[in-house]
Structures are given as structure tokens and as C-alpha cells.
Design a protein around this nucleic acid. Structure first.
Length: 561
RNA sequence: UGGCCUAUGGUGUAAUUGGUAACACAGCUGAUUUUGGUUCAGUCGUUCAAGGUUCGAGUCCUUGUAGGCCAACCA
């Protein structure tokens, strides 16, 4: 047997090369660095799977680090939600870290930089600083405060820290080069004054470090070996390295930033600002609305962590732009759900069937297979009686040969039960079909072993016994946006592309075994799709969310017409 | 008028680092099936362009072209 060569993505290639060049495997360390200012979404899931996946592959620790340098936007609530989501995805972090834990060290280093003449206090307003920044094609100009003495800088910076100034009065800037090609190198701001309560440090600080100053140094303090971020930070790398140069001790691990393209999912939006609008404008119910691409939304929708991890692995990681079709996510959901979910029967749009030759008042319990994928099959009982519900779309008075379902004069198998034949219909004054009267073949009972029971009939329908069925609210979800790239059209607001039919609520009749469904329980409603009991579901009022439909080749045939 | 990044089937990602372009999804055929599900078999289709180096280029070089990113006291 030839040994299979595992193909590596470009990030794994980087690590492998570092290892080949003598980097100690034991020194490998990664991190996932969310800002606690919103909920994690499917894009983050990809990043989580990347970093924690590397940790697993290389048996290296992975830190969960909250990038909490901006108390204006960050809240403890998000910290908790993020931890819950990462855990739910199935990952364990080594250390729980906060950038705010490093505020003192960062401050001390900043003082050092001032002493070395590499940082200065600028006392201009934001507009002036922006103006002097220049443009990508025009160099910037020096601030009039650029050449303040070290002593004056030290004094001002300390007083900034002590809260002697109002927000905006001064900033601390690195002294690099206002003419640099890379605009981020044009004396970037390291600290700003903010009289804001921080979720962890309270009112200890009224100056807060900026991302660029914080992130690389945090990586360094944690001795993270590889710091992966999205492509828009590529230009930041130069600054990341510059800041590192100021504090780096060659005996320690020097973190390496590398960038990958963020993953885009079709038919959705993922920016925090836009997701927030969906919530605030009531398009969806909440951050965990099952239509949201948030991890909490996917969870409530019925996705499994395994399916999301598998999705992340399947789409891989690279540096080019991409738009991944949601159908791949749906495939991953089905693939896992098919293996693990018990099969049940539920009717979403009921049509009454009366079996005219079945004794009135009689009930029998039939054996139903729980999941054909199980290695050792298990069964449950479902009640059968004279009056049933089937799916309205499963019956037609007349239909061609391609329609395998019930039609007048035609036969069909009721799953786990009998073969029935449609004899006639009862309609109301408007011609709407109220009932279908059928006859059944008593010898055709599923699993009875009789010749009649093994007869081949083309169609098999799901059903419930009218008298025994339990009512349940079923929420049917469709994609939130009707176009693949709602953000693509710069003329139009993404809200214009909202699919008005993304949610349909129906009252379904489900088999009695479902009365025990607990929030989070997942099922396959046979012939329909996968469903998950909502967090609001109770024994008195069952609520199911549709995760995803089964593949539907009949719909394809129909749509061709 | 600048800089950085990217370009492989419809989509996403590989290609043992210069040696037969492959895997998954989607599509299409068919088989099996008490779910028009699952499973199985088959099929369609790919290296941005033009040059160059080489016995040999998706990979290296040059020049184009196209797309993305860069001027928050955000991350």
C-alpha cells in the first residue's frame, strides 16, 4: 500500500518549512483572537477550525485571546457568548487571555520607546492628523509636535495615563516615517485617551492601546509562534514587525503574522454592522435566529458542530477571493444528520385520508425503524388507524407516470404500514379536496413477510394517524437573501435583497413519539428534511426548526417543466 | 499618478515543490431502495493572456490583463 500523501494548505506549508528550518516543534503555539464586540459567525468558525485544527495536528497549545482594547464597543456578554460558541464547536483552548492583561506591560514598553525617541505625544486633533497622513500616492507631513523632547513626551504621556486630559487632547504616536510607502508606517497612533469603563480593568486606565501596538506584542508575550489573520491585515505586517523589533529578545519565539482570505458564504452577509441591522430592524428575531449565519444561529437551526467543522475543512484555506455556495454547507449538514438523526413522520400540510375498509375505532401499533444507518437497528411504535393525514402535495386526482405518489385508482405504500389505493375524493363547494377515501390491503403490512407485504409499489408516503397525531409549530426557513452576493451591488443597500419568504410558520401533525422532544433534539422528518426542536419548544407546544431539506430530485423534475 | 495581495472546471481546494492536472460540492445518466433520502456506478468540465527559460512549466522569469486591499484616536 502506497502511503497517502497528505496535501497541505499554504499555512501548513509555512509551518512545515519553519520546522524544516529548525524551528522547535515544541515551540509551536497558536491563538484565536476575537474582539468581544459581537457574536461569532460562520466566518469565525473557519478561523477557529484553522487555528484549533493546527493545534490538534501539531499537538500545540492554542490560546483564546480576547482583543479587548476598545472599551467603547466591547462587553462581557460577548466574551461569554464567544466562549460558549468555541466550546460548542468542540475545541479546548490552552489559556484564556485578554489583551487587557497586558496593559501595564504595553505601557512600560511605550515609555521605553519614548525614551529611545521612537514615540512622541501629538497634541493635534484627529482631523489634522488625518490630513497630515497624506494619501497612498502622496507622502504625509510631520506633525509640529514630532520633535518634542523626551522629557516633555514622558511627562505628557504620564499625565495622559493619569487622566489629566480630555479624550482627544493627545495621542501617543510611534515615530517612524511620514513619507513611508505604507501608510500604516506613517507615525501610527499607539494610544488614545478614553475615559471609559473597561469590562475587565474598570477605570484603571484612561488611555487604551491601538490594535497594531497591542496585537503583535500580545502574540509575543504569549509566545505565539504563528499568528494568522485575514488578508486586510497584510499591510499591517510591516508595522507588526516594526513594533516587535522594538521589544524582541532573540532568545524568545518571534511570532510570525501570515494572512489568509476570509471565507465568503453565498446568500448571506457576515459583517457585524450588517448583522446588527438585521437584528435591530427586526428582519430576524435575534442574533441566534436560525436564519442568521452566526454560530448561535446555526446551532439553533440544528447544525451540528461536526458538520461545521467538516465544512471548514472541506472549503480549505487560501489567499484568493472566494464565494462558497451555501449548498456545500447544506451538504455537510445532511451528511452528518443523515447518520445521527432518528427518522420520524410528520405532516406539514395535512390532507385527510379515510381507509374505508379499516374497522372504525381500531388502532394498531406498527413497528417503525428508527434509522436505517444504524449498525444495530432499533424500532419504535407508531399508531395506525382508519383516519390519517398525508401531505397534501402527495395526492393528485390525475397525474402522469412520473408522479409516484397517490392518485385516484393508484396504489401507494404508507411507510411502515399498508399499501392503500385511492378510490375517490370528497370536495367542498369550491372544489377543494377535503378527504381522500382509500382502501387498504390488510395482508400488505410492512414486515409481516406475506407476499402482499413485499409487493413493489412505486411510491412510499409518510403519514400520521389523525387521532393520535400531535400538533407542532414548524418553522420553515429559506435563505435570508435572494441573491448570492447581497453586498455586491454598491448602488443598492443589501437590505433590498432580503428574501421575503425566508420564514414560513406552519402547524404540522407529528407522530406521538415526538411529544418527548427536548430543545435541541434533532430528527429527520422522513421525506421532508432535518428538523431541530427549538429552544422554546415544550411538551405543550412543540416547536421545530427546519435545518435543511432532504435532497429533492422530484423537485428538480417538477422545476424543469 | 503609488504600494501590497491574488488569478487552476459552475463553486471551493489540491498537485509529492519543474515530471500523467486531482478531490469535494453542484450538474447530468443509470442501478439499488418500504424516504423521489441514503448507497453504488458512470459522465460532463480546469491551469487569466502573450512571450521566455527548459527535454519537460499550473509551478520559474518578463510584460500585460482582471479582481481585491490600503488614507478610523476600529479590530
Amino acid at each position: 500500500m502506497a502511503e497517502e500523501v497528505k496535501s497541505l494548505n499554504f499555512i501548513e506549508h509555512i509551518i512545515e518549512e519553519d520546522l524544516r528550518n529548525g524551528f522547535e516543534k515544541n515551540n509551536l503555539r497558536f491563538r484565536f483572537p476575537p474582539e468581544p464586540n459581537g457574536y461569532l459567525h460562520i466566518g469565525h468558525a473557519s478561523s477557529i477550525c484553522l487555528n484549533f485544527g493546527l493545534g490538534l495536528d501539531y499537538q500545540a497549545p492554542v490560546n483564546l485571546r480576547f482583543d479587548d482594547t476598545n472599551p467603547e464597543k466591547e462587553e462581557r456578554e460577548f466574551v461569554e457568548a464567544i466562549k460558549r460558541d468555541v466550546e460548542w464547536l468542540g475545541f479546548e483552548w490552552d489559556k484564556e487571555c485578554y489583551a487587557s492583561d497586558y496593559f501595564q506591560q504595553l505601557y512600560d514598553w511605550a515609555v521605553e520607546l519614548i525614551k529611545q525617541g521612537k514615540a512622541y505625544v501629538d497634541s493635534q486633533d484627529a482631523a489634522s492628523i488625518a490630513e497630515q497622513k497624506g494619501t497612498p500616492t502622496r507622502p504625509g507631513t510631520n506633525s509640529p509636535f514630532r520633535d518634542r523632547s523626551v522629557d516633555e513626551n514622558l511627562d505628557l504621556f504620564e499625565r495622559m495615563k493619569n487622566g489629566e486630559f480630555q479624550a482627544g487632547a493627545h495621542v501617543l504616536r510611534a515615530k517612524i516615517d511620514m513619507g513611508h510607502q505604507n501608510m500604516l508606517m506613517r507615525d501610527p497612533i499607539m494610544y488614545r485617551i478614553m475615559h471609559k469603563e473597561h469590562h475587565r480593568t474598570g477605570s484603571d486606565w484612561c488611555i487604551y492601546p491601538m490594535y497594531d501596538w497591542t496585537h503583535g506584542e500580545s502574540d509575543y508575550l504569549e509566545q505565539v509562534s504563528h499568528s494568522f489573520c485575514t488578508l486586510e491585515f497584510a499591510m499591517h505586517r510591516e508595522l507588526y514587525d516594526w513594533f516587535l523589533d522594538q521589544v524582541y529578545d532573540p532568545n524568545k519565539v518571534r511570532p510570525k503574522q501570515r494572512e489568509f482570505a476570509r471565507r465568503n458564504l453565498s446568500h448571506t452577509v457576515v459583517s457585524k454592522r450588517k448583522l446588527l441591522r438585521l437584528v435591530q430592524e427586526g428582519v430576524v428575531e435575534a442574533w441566534d435566529d436560525p436564519r442568521m449565519p452566526t454560530i448561535s444561529g446555526l446551532r439553533r437551526r440544528g447544525y451540528t458542530p461536526e458538520s461545521i467543522r467538516n465544512f471548514a475543512n472541506t472549503i480549505g484555506i487560501a489567499k484568493r477571493e472566494n464565494l462558497i455556495d451555501v449548498s456545500l454547507l447544506e451538504f455537510c449538514a445532511r451528511e452528518h444528520l443523515n447518520k445521527i438523526t432518528p427518522r420520524v413522520m410528520g405532516v406539514l400540510d395535512p390532507l385527510k385520508v379515510v381507509i374505508t375498509n379499516y374497522p372504525e375505532g381500531q388502532t394498531e401499533q406498527l413497528q417503525a425503524e428508527n434509522n436505517p444507518e444504524e449498525e444495530e437497528l432499533t424500532f419504535r411504535e407508531v399508531p395506525f388507524s382508519r383516519e390519517l393525514y398525508i401531505e397534501r402535495e402527495d395526492f393528485r386526482e390525475e397525474a402522469n407516470r412520473k408522479f409516484f405518489r397517490l392518485k385516484l385508482g393508484g396504489e401507494v405504500r404508507l411507510k411502515n404500514a399498508y399499501i392503500i389505493k385511492a378510490e375517490n375524493v370528497v370536495k367542498d363547494d369550491n372544489g377543494k379536496i377535503l378527504e381522500v377515501h382509500c382502501t387498504y390491503d390488510p395482508l400488505s403490512k410492512s414486515g409481516s413477510g406475506t407476499p402482499e407485504s413485499t409487493r413493489k409499489v412505486k411510491g412510499t408516503l409518510h403519514w400520521v394517524s389523525a387521532a393520535h397525531a400531535v400538533k407542532a409549530e414548524v418553522r420553515l426557513y429559506d435563505r435570508l437573501f435572494s441573491v448570492a452576493e447581497p453586498e455586491e451591488d454598491k448602488e443598492k443597500d443589501f437590505m433590498e435583497f432580503i428574501n421575503p419568504d425566508s420564514l414560513e410558520i406552519t402547524t404540522a401533525y407529528v407522530e406521538p413519539s415526538l411529544a418527548e422532544a427536548k430543545p435541541g433534539d434533532r430528527y429527520q422528518f422522513q421525506r421532508l428534511g432535518y428538523f431541530c426542536a427549538d429552544k422554546s419548544s415544550t411538551a405543550d407546544q412543540l416547536v421545530f426548526n427546519k435545518t435543511v431539506g432532504l435532497r429533492d430530485s422530484w423537485a428538480k423534475i417538477e422545476n424543469k417543466k
